[in-house]
Amino acid sequence: MALATATIDFCALRANLARVKSLAPDSQVMAVLKANAYGHGLVPIAQQLADADAFAVARIEEALALRTGGITKPIVLLEGFFKASDIEIMLANNFQTVVHDEYQLEALEQAQLAGAIKVWLKVDTGMHRLGINPESINTFYRRLKDCPYVQDEVNLMTHFACADDNQDAYNEAQLQLFQTLVADKPEPLCLANSAAIINYPQSHGDWVRPGLMMYGVSPVKNTFSAQLQLTPVMTLSSEVIAVRPVRQGEPVGYGGHWRADKDTYLAVVAIGYGDGYPRHAQNGTPVLINAQRYPLVGRVSMDMITVDIGPDPSAVAVGDEAIMWGRELAIEEIAACADTIAYELLCNITPRVSYQYIASS
């Protein structure tokens, strides 16, 4: 095994997509592949999602990489295009675009194209990030319908700000506003991200767009993947490269951040923030070695972490696999120990980590 390795389980990926379909059986699925498929590998993941109806990315470069990789399914640019020269590229590659501001609308109206582009009109119902103001929907909608370079069907979409919390009344307010705005517009609707797919079935609409849940990670507040019948797709692991004694009172790592309260042994694992393991992981963050949980101690270094394995040095040997997160050790727990979110951990995997793709684990 290479040292830092991300093992990607294709069977788990497809099972999670099936779970999405079981939760939203009447909706088409737009699988979200932005940020290198949430750190899992853009093209390899897309190639395994034959049952998805479309793919979504954030940037046109990601969409082009999918086409270069042989992906022919519809691809939606969730942030739309950033300059007018992208429009010809979108048409040539059969990309679909979100429109969320006046610049994009005007660029489409002023284009000189040999065909028409599929458009998703995004309305800001409360996220206050991207999207047209609710008061502008009728104007934007009519101008898009009148534009000769926009396909006749204009899909309508919005984005929830708090869908991970099913107790937050803001979700219902956004849903009601969107439903009011689109009531007289007979177009396909798309509202639900991963959290809304689980927490708000009434928001499923014609399309759902799963991201995090498709990779087997919980998008719901204070919930682990197993509770949602999701299977982690990635296992991040490395190897023990040293086992060494530490005496009571001796400091470990940069700044002497941790001192042994008794004589013990440490396992040194070849992974660190240079691989994407979170530098701010706290003392006590679990690491799994030989099916046993051991606490991380000392500061995370660029290339190494140290793990307290206790008084028995024979419990762990050089060459043993150490699991940072995966099916047996929830990434949601590691994220909490690092005061971050699972999204960031997945997206922070660095290029020096080796990827291993398997059919099942």
Rank of each mutant, 00 (worst) to 15 (best):
R14L: 13
L17A: 05
A18F: 03
S27T: 02
M30K: 13
V32E: 05
A37I: 10
L49K: 10
A56N: 06
A56T: 04
L64Q: 09
T68V: 12
K73W: 03
P74C: 07
G80E: 05
F82M: 15
I87C: 02
A111G: 08
G115M: 10
I117T: 01
K118M: 11
V119M: 09
W120H: 14
W120G: 02
L121E: 00
G126P: 01
K145I: 00
D152Q: 15
A169N: 06
E172W: 11
Q179P: 00
P186G: 03
P188C: 03
N199D: 10
S203H: 02
G205E: 06
G216F: 02
K221P: 03
N222R: 07
T223A: 10
Q227E: 15
L230E: 01
T235F: 02
I241C: 13
R244T: 13
Q248F: 08
G253N: 08
G253E: 07
A267R: 08
D275Q: 13
G276V: 08
I289M: 13
M302S: 12
V307S: 00
V318T: 13
M324Q: 08
M324E: 06
I331H: 06
E333F: 08
A338M: 09
A342W: 02
Y343I: 10
V353Y: 00
S354F: 06
A359V: 11
